[in-house]
Simulated scan of single mutants.
Amino acid sequence: MSTLELHVDIDVPIDTAWEKIHQVENYPRFVQGVRGARTEAGGRAHLEVEAKGGARAVEAEVSDRGERVMEWLSVGAPELTGSFSLEPIDQNHTRIQARLEYDPDTVRDAFGGPRGFAQTNAIERLVRGDLEHFKEYVERR
């Protein structure tokens, strides 16, 4: 398993960021490759993602852990685990950290993409881009 941790500082209060990260239905606005998303009963999220030129459904269990930590775990393949941790910088600024645990080969098999080290770099660029898009999305509102 590989672990990726990245963060971005955003110019909104922590309560605003916390509310927005929980609005799964808006993920297509800032998560690349997500075509549709919705919350479901029992703390689950359903995502329609682009995969190998088509669409693939991904189900995840989502839960809040501790102070301002949202964790998720994919249900079925590919096995992905992650979290979003929010920390106040000051009254009007928040740091959001994304943590992702994954197997690069499994991700490649499920969604396509390059092999080996190039896959790891592609995932890092994707997550970094998604954090930047989240920042833009939240700050516009």
Rank of each mutant, 00 (worst) to 15 (best):
D109G: 13
L4C: 06
A118K: 04
A110H: 04
N26C: 00
E25L: 03
I14K: 04
A17R: 09
T81R: 14
E5L: 06
F111A: 14
E79G: 01
G42D: 07
A110G: 13
A60Q: 15
R65M: 01
R95C: 08
A118L: 14
E79Y: 00
H93D: 09
R128T: 13
Q32S: 12
R108S: 08
R141F: 12
R108C: 05
T106E: 15
L100T: 06
F111K: 14
R128E: 14
G33H: 05
T39Q: 03
E71L: 13
F117N: 02
R44E: 12
V8H: 00
T120P: 02
S74C: 02
E101A: 08
R99V: 14
P13N: 07
Q97G: 03
G53E: 11
H93V: 01
V12W: 13
P78V: 09
V127Q: 10
E25F: 06
A51G: 06
P78G: 03
V138M: 11
T94A: 07
R29V: 03
V138A: 15
G36Q: 09
S74H: 01
V58C: 03
G66F: 11
E136Y: 01
E132D: 05
W72S: 06
D109N: 11
Q91E: 14
D15K: 05
E101P: 01
G76D: 01
E71T: 15
E136N: 09
E71M: 12
L100W: 02
A77W: 04
E132L: 09
E67R: 13
R56N: 05
L100K: 07
S85W: 00
G76S: 11
V138K: 10
T3S: 13
L126W: 04
A41E: 13
V75S: 08
A41D: 13
L80M: 12
T106D: 15
E124I: 07
L47D: 08
E139R: 08
R35K: 14
G54W: 06
D9F: 00
E61K: 12
L4F: 02
A122Y: 05
A60H: 03
P104M: 04
Y102C: 10
E59P: 00
H7W: 00
T16K: 08
R99P: 06
E67G: 00
A122T: 11
L47Y: 14
I14L: 14
K135V: 11
E67A: 14
Q91V: 13
W18V: 04
L6Q: 08
V58G: 07
K52Q: 10
A55D: 11
G42H: 06
E132R: 02
I10F: 02
V69N: 08
I10C: 03
R35Y: 12
E139F: 12
H93G: 05
D11P: 05
I14P: 00
A55K: 03
A45P: 08
D15I: 03
A45H: 05
D90H: 01
I14S: 09
G43D: 02
L100Y: 02
I21A: 07
F111C: 15
R125W: 07
G42V: 10
A41Y: 03
E19Y: 10
N26L: 04
V49I: 13
D15P: 00
R108V: 06
H7M: 02
A77F: 10
